[in-house]
Design a protein around this nucleic acid. Structure first.
Lengths: 139, 139
DNA sequence: TACTTATCCTATCTACTTTATAGAGTATTG
DNA sequence: CAATACTCTATAAAGTAGATAGGATAAGTA
């Protein structure tokens, strides 16, 4: 299961992407509309900003808006940002790789083979799932 | 990521399946060979027994052995037993279904559509991954 | 029956993570 | 300067993962 943080992030991003104009949107507006605790959402949006997906503006008329194109924001990246690796086993991740201590030869590990296939399929589907794609699929 | 409990369970099951004879194997033997804390493994094997995958025998000459055929034990079932749902969102699970509070129409939810596809693909691959298949893949 | 073996059961513990809240700080606008 | 709205730091409650301890129960053996 993905964390609420990731779920909130996705909901917020979709909300922002649907407003195709790039005028800043208030945190409070997103929080209210998407039923997210505002203070919690603040931290989430900040992370998305640090990652270069969003940008913000302070003061009156401020808020958050998409920096990247909705075409370039996919679910794999968002999930990795908040929940870490997508793979189900440490030995089939790229960035968080960790060897199984009892494993002598990964190439001949049947378990690894299965979970590598699952990971590759999942990442492929999640990479295709951009904000544009999600909005397009709705309706 | 799957929990260590699930990982340990898979390792233990593969170990038992590789001994194709159905003579009881000691917990201590599995624990030692697979580097699993013995007391922790006891609880895991007990769960697998309650689920009908393993059977046990007490006293001298006792231990655990496969009750189901290695053909009929797949990774989807094992993961569900220990880690719960395979799906990444509560609204795309079967047994643990939960509606998103803000969602008005699931059929038109683009997010749900994406994660339903991921779930279906994952379950399909994990169901195919039986103990027999895993051993076969490991040359 | 008494002893040994090995699973079964219950309780508990520590550390970590998730989710969330509070409050003060900082930059921008008018 | 005052209002607005994002930014930062600290903290706390709740839940979960991973592991350990100790005794209860059942089965075989002499």
């Amino acid at each position: 299961m993905i964390s609420k943080k990731t779920k909130y992030a996705i909901n917020a991003l979709v909300y922002l992407a649907k407003k195709n104009d790039n005028t800043p949107i208030l945190i409070s507006e997103i929080a209210e509309h998407e039923h997210i605790p505002q203070k919690f959402l603040e931290a989430i949006l900040l992370d998305l900003k640090k990652d270069g997906i969003l940008a913000s503006k302070k003061g009156k008329g401020g808020g958050y808006f998409l920096l990247k194109s909705p075409n370039d924001v996919n679910m794999a990246d968002v999930m990795r940002l908040f929940d870490g690796p997508i793979a189900l086993l440490p030995c089939v991740t790229y960035k968080y790789y960790q060897k199984c201590e009892e494993c002598t030869d990964e190439e001949s590990c049947g378990i690894r083979s299965v979970f590598l296939e699952v990971r590759n399929q999942t990442v492929k589907l999640l990479k295709k799932a951009t904000l544009t794609e999600i909005i397009h699929r709705g309706n």
